[in-house]
Design a binder for these strands. Structure first.
Length: 825
RNA sequence: GCGGACGUGGCGGAAUUGGCAGACGCGCUAGACUUAGGAUCUAGUGUCACCGACGUGGGGGUUCAAGUCCCUUCGUCCGCACCA
């Protein structure tokens, strides 16, 4: 019999599906385990990154299942989004049709990989049964003031013709299409994620099973800073400009102030000044600049004098007020006090515009001369020129000066976050409609829950021009006000797809519920996700949004946990020739082609064997061949022993020969290693190599032990365990082999083997003998010798005697069971 | 600039707590079987001046012992980037 993967894989895939082997129900008898891989966007075809993601998840799911857990392992589709709409514009196919045919194809590909999904729990975010509840989520957030509409400068991608969240702007470009993102003043819907900034930050500590990298990225993104806000009076006006600073210790060194050109107060300030026209020009110029040109570090600092002066409340200094390109309107108060002596940005600006530099912190044992400085002094030092704070160490002065500012009523302590509210409206068609109606009398009116879902209309035109396609649907726009019944207008913006993916893991717990997004009890049973697996590109976006959703739902009482994912594995990329597989580089290997040529088992095995999951993986056609050979090698050795292992026989270790003992040790040691590598360390590559070593041992046993001396009971156990341990990696071949060796039922229903600790105790062990830390000899000795006996033996070795002759043995160090090191002089 | 990860044979990678560096696989070499083999099996495979020495990016240190710990330096990759 030979390994005919094509028939075998097809046969078992069908059987698993028909028998619903991987469908799960809640059960009090077993502990639950939730394995989740980030659901894909249905682009049409699986790529190797998907294969890697799902293969990793499948090993975990199958392993946990064999370890007695009630494993939920669902799959679905993140199926709203722009590509569907672009396909509609380009090819005239309706997004709905395009998306569903892609889903169908990818579902087939997933099934051909033999991943152990519970297909009864499949969800698609573009299905009305799903987005009904996404809309419901919106309404709940709206009810609690966590969804609101505001006019502001937002990121605008000209190519996607929609606004973007801050998280979707990467280096000033659209995360999706790489076009340069501009700014537009628009009225948009936001989720108030900033309300949760502190909790999102604090609870990072709870995420013990997350990679530090991701946690640090989230921390930086949330970007908490502590400081103080201070009011500076505008000279000659009944106005104040409020600044925010984290360095109040430098406040006596303020020599000018800078304010963002977009700051709402600016218009009033410049009115009637001599500089009004120059300022207006500057403001106009800035408004045309895109994010990149405006905020890049390389861009030179630029500004103009407003003609106004402000007064530093601490020392009554009158300092000029400038508009400057480097001040961000959205952060802090949009105005910054400038201390050129102690802030590099201010230093550069002051040099350019000839503004004074005033030293207020002196480094220990030095005297800075403002006129000779070449860069700002930003380190800790001692205050000078700072009134009653002179001589105080600058880091201690921060708290003292804030206290003083508060006492005097100049301002107050303030914590700021870099995190901005999440802009969720999109001017696109293929998304969940925002369930809101505008009424001339009642204003913004949410659609009542019983009227959900707000269905996406089909009478729309996809021109790729002008407004959102939804604006072309007469049937959609016209809607009665739910409050007064008067004719109103429906919101034509849809939700960011990240809204849909922020709660899908909850829907899997109760996917068919028509009355609620999910049943509380089901969610309580299955959640949180025990193991989440996906690419690091979602370190901020999806993972932060999901955490926010979970916390909001927790506060509303819908869920019992406020963190969705207990453990997170961020898998590395799949590379070919050192670069990420991409169409433009022409280095793509399609999963379908590999499955066709070698089978799903080989594809999975290679991907798991080539590299540990969190590292990047270099694709190797020869490596794939090697894995294919390995499966064949397993296949052959089992068939070689098939007659010997047919009958049931009890193992009798007392009759073991030396070779039997070696193999028995190997079997048990492999169980130990694989259990640990898969269950604890997630190092599938070393787990597989351990099994390869076991296979090599079986070949050795076959070759070196005479037939009449072969222990068939031992062989039977060895082979059974080998098949079981390989089952999570190559589920089809092992299922077939399980039958071939005469077993009933599925190998995937077997419990994970346990090793016999006695089998790991060797009668004889090898001890390394070192002189001054260098290996000189090896000693095979009985394992039960005392430390002293071992040392004695070591000192008696021929080589050691020869080498230590005439030298002084200073010390002997032994590591039990491992080595003896003899220190000589 | 700030933050993080990493650097080990010809290649992918092992070495889990400081204890034999290079497991396992690829590739390569030789042999066996064979009409033939790109199938399979067996043996070998870090480097060199090969009974020995050297060797985990470089330099220094701690230690009986360092890929692993400390200092320093170089390089690669990733994230953030005027956040006051």
């Amino acid at each position: 019999m030979h390994y005919d993967f094509k028939d075998i894989e097809k046969k078992w895939q069908k059987k698993w599906l028909d028998d619903k082997v991987f469908s799960v129900q809640q059960s009090d008898k077993k502990e639950k385990y939730y394995v989740l891989e980030m659901f894909p966007y249905p682009s049409g075809n699986l790529h190797m990154g998907h294969v890697r993601n799902y293969s990793i998840g499948d090993v975990v799911a199958r392993f946990k299942r064999m370890n007695g857990y009630n494993v939920i392992h669902p799959m679905g589709w993140d199926s709203f989004g722009l590509p569907a709409e672009n396909a509609a514009i380009k090819r005239g196919i309706h997004p709905n049709e395009w998306t569903w045919s892609n889903i169908e194809n990818m579902r087939r590909q997933l099934k051909e990989l033999g991943i152990s999904y519970d297909w009864d729990r499949e969800v698609a975010t573009c299905h009305p049964d799903y987005y009904k509840w996404t809309q419901w989520m919106f309404l709940q957030l709206y009810k609690r003031g966590l969804a609101y509409k505001k006019k502001s400068y937002v990121n605008w991608c000209p190519s996607c013709a929609t606004v973007l969240a801050n998280e979707q702007v990467v280096n000033g470009a659209c995360e999706r299409c790489k076009s340069i993102v501009g700014k537009k003043e628009l009225e948009q819907w936001f989720f108030k994620i900033t309300d949760y900034a502190q909790r999102l930050l604090d609870d990072i500590e709870k995420l013990k099973g997350w990679p530090d990298k991701v946690k640090i990225m989230q921390q930086n993104w949330i970007g908490r800073s502590e400081g103080v806000e201070v009011d500076f009076k505008v000279d000659g006006m009944d106005k104040v400009v409020r600044i925010y600073t984290t360095r109040p210790d430098t406040i006596y060194g303020v020599t000018y102030m800078v304010i963002a050109p977009e700051h709402p107060i600016v218009k009033e300030l410049i009115k009637g000044t001599e500089q009004e026209e120059t300022c207006k020009e500057f403001i106009n110029k800035m408004s045309y600049l895109n994010e990149i040109d405006r905020t890049s570090n390389e861009v030179e600092k630029e500004g103009v004098f407003t003609g106004r002066y402000v007064i530093n409340p601490l020392n009554n200094d009158k300092v000029p007020l400038y508009l400057a390109n480097y001040v961000l309107a959205e952060y802090g108060t949009g105005a910054v006090m400038a201390v050129p002596a102690h802030d590099q940005r201010d230093f550069e600006f002051s040099k350019k515009y000839g503004l004074p530099i005033k030293v207020v912190i002196q480094p220990e044992g030095q005297q800075l001369d403002a006129s000779k400085m070449t860069e700002a002094f930003e380190e800790v030092g001692y205050l000078t020129n700072s009134g009653k704070f002179d001589g105080v160490r600058s880091d201690e002065a921060i708290g003292k000066i804030i206290d003083y500012i508060e006492q005097m009523g100049y301002g107050e302590r303030k914590v700021n976050f870099r995190l901005r509210d999440w802009l969720i409206s999109r001017q696109r068609y293929w998304g969940a409609p925002i369930p809101v109606i505008y009424c001339d009398d009642c204003g913004i009116v949410p659609v009542p829950e019983e009227d959900l879902p707000v269905i996406l209309p089909t009478d729309v035109k996809f021109s790729g021009q002008g407004e959102s396609p939804l604006s072309t649907s007469e049937t959609f726009i016209a809607a009665k006000c739910p409050k007064c019944g008067k004719m109103g207008r429906r919101e034509i913006d849809t939700m960011d797809t990240f809204v849909c993916s922020s709660w899908y893991y909850l829907r899997y717990c109760d996917p068919c519920n028509a009355k609620e997004p999910f049943d509380k009890e089901s969610v309580k049973y299955w959640m949180p996700v025990d193991q989440y697996i996906g690419g690091v590109e979602h370190a901020i976006l999806h993972l932060l949004y999901s955490r926010f959703f979970m916390k909001a739902l927790y506060d509303m009482g819908y869920v019992a946990y406020d963190e969705p994912f207990t453990n997170l594995l961020t898998q590395g990329m799949v590379l070919k020739d050192g670069a990420k597989m991409s169409k433009s580089l022409g280095n793509v290997v399609s999963p379908e082609e590999i499955i066709e040529k070698y089978g799903a088992d080989t594809a999975r095995l290679f991907i798991l064997f080539a590299s540990p999951p969190e590292k990047d993986l270099e694709w190797s056609d020869q490596g794939v061949e090697g894995c294919y050979r390995f499966i064949n090698r397993v296949w052959r050795i089992i068939n070689d022993f098939i007659d010997a292992i047919k009958e049931d026989q009890a193992i009798d270790t007392s009759k073991f020969t030396a070779e039997d003992k070696k193999l028995w040790f190997m079997v048990n040691n492999t169980i130990k290693r694989v259990t640990d590598d898969v269950g604890q360390r997630f190092n599938f590559n070393t787990a597989i190599s351990a099994i390869m070593e076991l296979v090599n041992s079986l070949y050795y046993y076959k070759d070196k032990v005479a037939d009449e001396s072969k222990n068939s009971a031992l062989l039977k156990v060895a082979i059974e365990n080998m098949i079981i341990m390989l089952a999570p990696f190559i589920p089809h071949a092992t299922e077939e082999l399980w039958r071939i060796i005469g077993k009933e039922g599925s190998v995937h229903d077997q419990s994970w083997p346990k090793y016999d600790p006695d089998a790991l105790i060797k009668d004889e062990i090898e001890i390394v003998v070192q002189i001054n830390g260098k290996v000189r000899d090896k000693l095979v000795i009985p394992s039960n010798l005392t430390k002293e006996q071992v040392e004695e033996q070591a000192l008696k070795c021929e080589k050691i005697v020869a080498e230590t002759q005439g030298k002084n043995v200073v010390k002997v160090i032994s590591v039990p069971g491992k080595l003896v090191n003899i220190v000589v002089k």
